[in-house]
């Protein structure tokens, strides 16, 4: 029960300060869950984001569910997800009840213009930390550049490929390229792996 509550509170905190969309939660997850609590690893987080991108539902929710589930099964997944949406629910209900012109207030606009700068720096730093574990050779570098360009230029390209499709294609390419390499590495190793099973 204590661990369930911890999961709820950890995600409550992240949900309360998660400005700027699902990917902006990555630096917060890294700090609170990887470094401080040791609940997950940076590699696992990267995988969750990739999978969360191509499965139904919002990425942030998918990632929260993933981590909760790994920690404490179904109860943990529910605790993490409900924790993540708790603060936004309260904030929106408060705004809807009391503050009709909230987003137009100068102080709010100025504060968030500042926060956006911070979010963008936090995301850049998260990318730099993940780089060595994700872009490990020329193949992954090409994949990175291709997906980045397709996503960043999606507004300009004549044919916008949905992010989910890009992720699925990358996964399939990974399987194909990895399979080819295993084939080249010789039948001995492949046989060895089969024999182990």
């Amino acid at each position: 029960m204590k661990e369930i509550l911890e999961l709820y509170l950890a995600f409550f905190k992240i949900g309360a300060v998660n400005f700027g969309g699902g990917y902006a939660m990555l630096p917060l997850l890294e700090r609170d869950l990887v470094e401080t609590r040791g609940w997950t690893t940076t590699e696992d987080l990267t995988d969750y984001f990739a999978i969360g991108q191509c499965t139904p539902g919002l990425i942030a929710l998918n990632v929260a569910t993933f981590i909760g589930c790994r920690r404490k099964g179904i109860a943990g997944a529910v605790a993490a997800t409900v924790g993540f949406v708790s603060a936004p629910i309260v904030i929106i209900l408060l705004i809807a009840t009391f503050l009709q012109g909230f987003a137009d207030l100068p102080v709010v606009q100025n504060a968030f213009a500042g926060i956006r700068v911070c979010v963008c720096v936090l995301i850049i730093q998260a990318v730099l930390r993940l780089w060595n574990k994700s872009v490990v050779d020329k193949t992954t570098l090409v994949l990175y550049l291709a997906v980045f360009l397709m996503t960043a230029l999606s507004g300009v390209l004549p044919l916008a490929v949905p992010a989910a499709v890009l992720v699925i294609i990358s996964g399939i390419l990974g399987v194909l390229i990895g399979g080819l390499r295993d084939g080249k590495a010789g039948n001995t190793t492949a046989n060895g792996k089969e024999a182990e099973k």
Binding site: F49, L143, V147, G171
Partner: peptide
Amino acid sequence: QHALYGLRPASIAMITAAG
């Protein structure tokens, strides 16, 4: 493992684009 090898660079490419 191979699928994740392909997914990871795609994942951080999208994070870069979001940034």
